[in-house]
């Protein structure tokens, strides 16, 4: 199986988030994810891309399709060089927002995917990587 090459998209405006959702959906379909899993990973991507835009001051996403034995997945890495997250526990607390959101994006998207890695450093930026595998 030749997985699609990694694609990088900018995150600088609202329209970019729409484009990212569309690409994630397409890739999720190629990875043969069920409709529920497609919706979950698309929703998680939407949350993380918006965080990159709103809190990270913009950035980019790299989307590819990793394989693990016979399983194919979709992976998205959201990268910004913004302020970073000073208190990760707080940021991951359900309902906590430093802005005007619902405070459910980080905690919620962590539940929506199979793998969730968050790297952040104050003053350096934030990178969130998610993976969703086909069943």
């Amino acid at each position: 199986m030749t997985a699609a090459a990694a694609i990088e998209l900018p995150i600088g405006a609202d329209e970019d988030i729409v484009r990212i959702r569309q690409l994630v959906r397409t890739r999720a379909q190629e990875a043969k994810l069920s409709l529920v899993d497609q919706t979950k990973v698309v929703t998680a991507a939407s949350e993380l891309a918006r965080n990159t835009l709103t809190y990270g001051g913009g950035g980019r996403v790299v989307i590819d399709m990793p394989t693990n034995g016979r399983r194919v997945g979709i992976r998205a890495r959201f990268i910004d060089e913004g302020p970073g997250i000073p208190d990760l526990d707080l940021a991951l607390t359900e309902g906590w927002t430093s802005g005007k959101g619902m405070g459910l994006g980080l905690s919620g998207s962590r539940r929506l995917v199979d793998e969730f890695t968050l790297d952040t450093e104050v003053g350096r930026g934030t990178t969130v990587t998610i993976v969703k595998w086909s069943r």
Binding site: V36, Q38, T39, E94, G108, S109, R111
Partner: peptide, 13 residues
Amino acid sequence: RPHIAQTIVELGI
């Protein structure tokens, strides 16, 4: 729809 409902619930909305 069901898949949206499931996602909404898991998000915590």
